[in-house]
Computed example of a mutant assay.
Amino acid sequence: MNKLLVLTLFYAALFIFPSTSFGQAPSLGTASSFALFTANGAFFNAGASMIIGDIGTNEGAFNGFPIPGTVVGNIRLPNTAEAAQAALDVVAAYNSLTPVACGPSIIADLASQTLTPGVSCQTLTTATSLNGTLTLSGAGIYIIKLNSALTTATNSSILLTNGATAANVYFQVNGAVTLGTNSSLKGTIIATGAIDFGTQASLEGRALSTAGAITLSNNSVYPPALSPDLTPVIELPQANFATAPNNERDFVVNVFELGGSPTSSGNVAMTLSAPIGYTISFTNTISSITVSGGSTVSVDNTKWTATSSDGDRFH
């Protein structure tokens, strides 16, 4: 009685931003292509994490990818030119945010606050938490500067309203970052300490550290511009399976273009997950797909791979 099936479709992209000033995004340099990176620290994953974007470390042990995790992007390891340059760029990005003038002050618990575009700063040095929902309202760049470590609670989240987008949100964290179980954060995190993802925590953006380990546990991290209409959730009620032979059902997923633009030129990944004890199967013999209102698109099934943990992941 498979109650819930979640399909997430991602499309890899890079983002380049202007130099930092009040209300402007920091330049990430080559780090803009990374979903997860630490300039100095170990990188560890446990479970079927799905990461869209480059990952790596410039100094420290690395394990957990490509198995059991899945990455749609490059893995950059110590003693490579790419990792060395990304390390320099992450430190430069963090330092560029330090002199940026502060606007509104924020309190230690980010929950139940509503921030508008600009630079918001924590004035105290006590630990910062998110024990609920932080609302960001309005189109523009958000720079959130924290003087201490950040911890998000279980099921905490960030709500984007009135034109706010994850691509325009930046957290400068002077310390470690801990994302709680099932929490959902949006934006680019640039921290000076370890970044620890609790089980099933997700990030629409990037997590970058100047000096700290990155730890994952069945997480998803994906680029900020990809989520608006490419993350459908399919509800499969238990009643639909009760009378079906062997408790099996076919289902149809409708996927739409992002903002009217085709997504055929980059890497595309679909994640199909089912509760523990159930499996997902798919036909890998189709040769074409008919697009409503358009033409027939050929499909090359040799480009698809599947891995399985609690569910099935195809990319």
Score class of each variant (00 low, 15 high):
L4C: 11
L5W: 10
T8I: 10
F15L: 08
G23D: 04
Q24R: 03
P26S: 13
S33T: 15
A42Y: 11
E59H: 10
P68N: 11
L77P: 08
A86C: 10
A86M: 04
A92R: 11
Y94P: 05
S96T: 03
S96E: 12
A101F: 15
S105A: 10
A108I: 15
S120T: 10
L124V: 14
T125W: 07
T126I: 14
T126G: 08
A127M: 07
L134G: 10
L136C: 01
A139N: 00
I141E: 00
I143P: 01
I144P: 08
I144Q: 04
L146E: 07
S148N: 13
L150R: 09
T154L: 03
T154K: 04
T161G: 03
A164K: 00
A167I: 01
F171E: 04
V177G: 03
L179G: 03
S183C: 04
L185F: 06
T188S: 01
A191P: 06
R206T: 00
S209V: 10
G212D: 05
A213V: 11
T215S: 12
T215L: 04
V221E: 00
P223N: 06
S227G: 01
S227H: 00
T231G: 01
V233W: 05
E235T: 12
L236Q: 09
P237E: 02
A242C: 06
V255P: 11
F256N: 09
L258H: 09
G260V: 07
S261D: 02
P262C: 06
P262I: 05
G266W: 05
M270K: 02
T271G: 06
S281V: 14
T283Q: 06
I286L: 14
T290G: 07
T290D: 12
G293L: 08
G294T: 10
V297T: 13
K303C: 08
A306V: 15
D312T: 13
R313S: 12
